[in-house]
Measured scan of single mutants.
Amino acid sequence: GVTLFVALYDYEARTEDDLSFHKGEKFQILNSSEGDWWEARSLTTGETGYIPSNYVAPVDS
């Protein structure tokens, strides 16, 4: 299955590639091989962008 991640904090995008999000928003991670910045798709907005990996945690299934 796909592991979903949930935002622990609000984040405001600093570049066009970043994804702004709110605490509690859920994400599907598309690429986590880039280190501290993961490519993710928000399940709330459907938008794709980079998120700071230390702002999210796995959702307990």
Rank of each mutant, 00 (worst) to 15 (best):
F27R: 00
N54F: 05
P52I: 01
D36V: 07
D36A: 09
K23C: 08
S33L: 12
E25F: 02
E12C: 10
S32N: 09
S32L: 06
K26W: 02
L8F: 03
S32F: 06
L8C: 07
L8G: 10
D36M: 04
E47Q: 12
F27Q: 00
I51C: 02
Y9K: 15
S33I: 07
A7C: 01
L30P: 08
L43H: 13
V59K: 10
I51V: 13
A40R: 00
A57L: 11
G35T: 07
T44W: 04
L30R: 05
V2R: 13
W37T: 14
E25S: 04
D17T: 07
L43A: 13
T3N: 15
E16K: 10
F5H: 13
K26G: 04
V2M: 15
G49A: 02
W37N: 15
E16R: 11
T44R: 10
D18S: 13
A13K: 09
A7N: 00
N54G: 10
E25G: 02
V6N: 06
G24T: 03
F27G: 00
W38N: 03
I51E: 00
W37C: 14
E16S: 07
I29E: 00
H22A: 15
L30E: 05
R14Y: 10
Q28E: 15
S42F: 02
H22N: 09
Y11C: 07
G1V: 12
A57C: 14
V59L: 10
I51K: 00
S61Q: 02
F21W: 00
D18G: 13
G49V: 01
K23T: 06
P58N: 03
Y11D: 01
T45M: 03
T44G: 10
Q28G: 08
D36P: 13
F5R: 07
F21D: 00
K26H: 15
S42H: 15
A57V: 11
V56L: 14
L4P: 04
W38I: 11
V56S: 01
V2Y: 14
A13D: 02
D60A: 05
G49R: 01
D10W: 01
D10L: 01
N54D: 06
F21I: 09
T48P: 03
K23I: 07
T15I: 06
A57R: 14
A7Q: 00
I29Q: 03
L19S: 02
H22C: 10
F5Q: 07
K26E: 13
V2I: 15
R41N: 05
W38V: 09
A13I: 01
E12P: 11
E39I: 08
